[in-house]
Design a protein around this nucleic acid. Structure first.
Length: 463
RNA sequence: GGCGGCGUAGCCAAGUGGUAAGGCAGAGGUCUGCAAAACCUCUAUUCCCCAGUUCGAGUCUGGGCGCCGCCUCCA
């Protein structure tokens, strides 16, 4: 079993060889904190978290960094719109991000650096670029000179001539080449700014990641990930900045880009107006369902989203949760002798699961393996049990956790409800089915579903 | 115009040379006092079309058609 990763830089699936054997450093471009994330954004953050979990599962010691972009035009505009300070908005939205992430079972990264906490690193980085003749000062702004970096365009496959045609040069910008991009923006009145050798100002967008990778991870990393809209210009520019200073060693050995969420055959995005705020979706759907849905297609393929997507995902995931609950119930049944019968070949399933994930993080395929395991477990239960119920339960739980989904449904039950269930059992024994069905109906109103099984009554919360 | 990607059943999808995973929805059956859950059976002779390579192609090559993304803030 060897991990293979599709590398955007080479456009090929490559054998994964980290810089340091057994260790992986990974950086994911995080959110610009100006409002709640939408479902498309969530896909990328779930991807990063899933890759991290898979790497850990495969035995790597992972250092995972995800930044917050906390100074930017959109943030400044939004704060003004809301009539609050940039700081207030940023603090609020970072908090919101963690709330949303937690709902999707996205674990906090090892570090979540903020741009504004790294201004010194950024200024130092820009100074290095200027010293190396990769950047130039122009009236308080500092620009990166794309022509100084011959490899410019390698990540996106763009040629400088082609880029020049499409580039937009704003009035007043003194760029030497149309594709040159800003490293440091001179301060405008009323905007957040920091002192620098070129005057007060704030960092451009791309420089933050180069600087934070350098300060947090040492300048060279194994995996750099983000949504595919960041491939150009953001990642192309990051690469140019970082590798200008360190020729010979790549900024990232593997570039991973996640595909978009598609609504009505179009990319879900703020500008299209076809986006769904994650927060709103979570009002109606469990986070595990949303996460499961986001993993239902391979990360490099667009994933279609429509009104039925989450209901369908919910039904699918409950198939696994039901199997899990059934196994727990069998295991907990007191009066049944230890189950014998066939023993499920768990090693076989785990091997397939692992190999599928090792093939460019194929989570959707790995879920398929889990469904097959669930079917075999269900079949065994139907036939009277299996020899290794506890191990099946553990394996199912462990593998779902690699994908970040909890199959165990936490449930508590009030004493009155237990009393009702007991009374229904009495009624059933007395063949008073009218009363028994009445109690079952009443419980259903309370959101509790009863199932009569050979091992006794099983209940669950209605989904 | 430049660059990149996609096209698999009603729907969502996995699958990069060996004879079509999985899920949802649907039909029939089993189990059940009735349900629920589950199980069994059925639902793509076929992977947009046409050529080619090969013993063998959804998978490789060439051409065509359709769709999407990036090139401007964007996950």
């Amino acid at each position: 079993m060897q991990l293979q990763i599709y590398n955007t830089l080479t456009r090929e699936k490559e054998l994964f060889v980290p810089r340091i054997p057994g260790k992986v450093s990974m950086y994911l471009c995080g959110p610009t904190v100006y409002n709640r994330i939408h479902l498309g954004n969530a896909r990328t953050f779930v991807l990063g978290d899933t890759i991290r979990r898979i790497l850990v599962y495969l035995g790597y010691d992972v250092t995972y960094v995800q930044n917050f972009t906390d100074v930017d035009d959109k943030i400044i505009d939004r704060a003004a719109e809301l009539g609050i300070s940039v700081d207030e908005l940023v603090e609020q939205e970072i908090k919101n991000y963690f709330t949303d992430a937690e709902a999707l079972n996205i674990r906090a990264a090892d570090k979540h650096p903020r741009v504004t906490a790294h201004i010194g690193d950024i200024v130092a980085f820009i100074e290095d670029l200027i010293a190396g003749d990769f950047a130039y000062v122009s009236d308080g702004d500092v620009f990166y000179s794309v022509e100084s970096f011959p490899a410019y365009g390698q990540l996106s496959g763009q040629k400088l001539e082609d880029l020049a045609l499409g580039s937009r040069v704003e009035v007043g910008e003194a760029k030497r080449h149309p594709a040159d991009f800003v490293l440091w923006k001179a301060a405008k009145p009323g905007e957040p700014n920091w002192p620098s050798p070129w005057g007060a100002g704030r960092p451009g967008w791309h420089i933050e990641c180069s600087a934070m990778v350098r300060s947090e991870l040492g300048g060279h990393i194994d995996i750099h990930a983000g949504g595919s809209d960041l491939q150009f210009p953001h990642h192309e520019n990051e690469l140019a900045q970082s590798e200008a200073l360190c020729p010979g060693e790549p900024l990232a050995r593997y570039w991973v880009h996640g595909a978009f969420l598609i609504v009505n055959d179009e990319k879900m995005s703020k500008s299209q107006g076809n986006f769904f705020i994650l927060r709103d979706i979570l009002r109606h759907h469990d986070g595990s369902v949303v996460r499961f849905f986001l993993q239902s297609a391979h990360y490099r393929k667009p994933l279609a989203f429509d009104a039925t997507s989450l209901d369908s995902a919910n039904a699918a995931l409950h198939r696994l949760k039901n199997t899990y609950a059934a196994l727990e119930h069998v295991l907990a049944a007191r009066d049944t002798p230890p189950a014998s019968g066939e023993v499920l070949d768990l090693a076989k399933y785990e091997e397939r699961f692992k190999e599928t994930l090792a093939d460019d993080f194929n989570a959707a395929g790995a879920w398929g393996v889990l469904f097959e395991l669930a079917r075999e477990a269900n079949t065994a239960i139907t036939r009277g049990g299996m020899g290794n119920t506890a191990e099946v339960l553990d394996t199912l739980h462990k593998l779902a956790d690699v994908l970040g989904v909890e199959l165990r449904v936490e449930k508590s039950i009030a004493a009155e409800v237990e009393e009702l269930i007991a009374r229904r059992e009495e009624a059933r024994r007395a063949r008073d089915f009218w009363t028994a069905d009445k109690i079952r109906q009443d419980l259903l109103q309370l959101g509790i579903v009863l199932e009569d099984t050979p091992q006794g009554v099983r209940w669950k919360l209605k989904w």
